[in-house]
């Protein structure tokens, strides 16, 4: 169990951000932090990892205090059992892939964990290469493997997939889910991709201007906001195509395995492009019900 209350005033572009966050994360949970950029999501991860010191609050992990402002406990990042995957990967440029992983080993730790990670993440053919010769997706796999070498109590992922194309993103999501289950990890993912959160997380915190505005299961929080009245159906899908039909547009959306076409006006599709994750809301006024059995 991880409990954290974090308070910090952050200097941001155009003023200050008063961060005030409370998190309760069960062991083995997959939690997502969702919100616009600049809302303070990355700062939360950094405070959990010990890279940023909160002004007030406490962080307790399985009963051990990592941070406690009242008792003046501040564990440095070195003493926190954390795996951190940075947005820009942060691989060590002078080391090969394998060296990046062995560097992470603790004193006296056996290397078989590295062999296992290399196998799961299919890094075998890449292990003697330097990071600057790898693609974004390959670098991200190395960063993920490196973060897991020390068997951390907490895995922190800071928008790890935002720079990748859709196909690579799906593949890496599967890797992350596989590792999360295989090692029974407790994982926190920062993401602004609704589809990704729905697919991966079992709990989501929506962060707006440094505060948690909503939290719960991804489907309940991200899809059915309180402003939408009863009598509607909401589904998340991927935008496949936008086709002009006179004054209207026909929008093709992939809902998991089902492709549907939706009629839309110019204002509806403003700012949308192919590949976006979209929420399809349909009214259920006058639905046709048919008895099947």
């Amino acid at each position: 169990m991880i409990t954290a209350t974090l308070q910090k005033t952050l200097g941001v572009v155009g003023g200050q951000l008063d961060l005030d966050i409370e998190l309760q994360i069960a062991k083995g949970a997959f939690v997502a932090l969702y919100g616009a950029s600049g809302a303070g999501k990355t700062s939360i991860l950094r405070m959990l990892a010990g890279l940023l010191t909160p002004d007030q609050g406490r962080v307790h992990v399985a009963g051990t205090p990592w941070f406690d402002a009242a008792k003046r406990v501040v564990l440095p990042p070195q003493q926190r059992s954390v795996g951190y995957v940075f947005q820009e990967y942060a691989l060590f440029p002078t080391m090969t892939v394998r060296k990046n992983l062995t560097y992470a080993l603790e004193k006296g730790q056996e290397a078989h964990r590295i062999e296992e990670l290399i196998e799961i993440l299919e890094l075998g053919p890449l292990q003697d290469r330097k990071p600057d010769t790898l693609s974004g997706g390959q670098q991200q796999r190395v960063a993920l493997a490196r973060a897991l070498v020390r068997m951390p109590a907490l895995l922190l992922l800071d928008e790890p997939l935002s720079a990748l194309d859709a196909q690579m993103r799906t593949k890496l999501q599967d890797y992350i889910l596989q590792l999360h289950k295989h090692y029974a990890l407790t994982t926190i993912l920062v993401s602004h991709d609704v589809g990704e959160i729905v697919k991966m997380a079992d709990h989501v915190y929506c962060v707006t201007d440094g505060k948690v505005t909503r939290s719960g299961t991804p489907l309940s929080v991200l899809t059915a906001s309180k402003t939408i009245p009863q009598g509607r159906i909401q589904r998340i899908g991927e935008l496949l195509a936008i086709q002009s039909e006179g004054t209207m547009y026909i929008v093709t959306v992939l809902l998991q395995t089902e492709v549907i076409k939706v009629l839309a006006q110019v204002t509806d599709i403003a700012g949308m492009q192919v590949g976006d994750t979209v929420l399809v809301t349909a009214t259920t006024i006058d639905p046709i019900l048919t008895k099947l059995s």
Partner: peptide
């Protein structure tokens, strides 16, 4: 993030300086 990645992996500032 290069130094930070090394700290999170449990390495001291001196180790980070010389190896990373």
């Amino acid at each position: 993030s290069l130094a930070e990645a090394s700290y999170v992996l449990g390495k001291s500032k001196l180790q980070t300086l010389f190896y990373v």
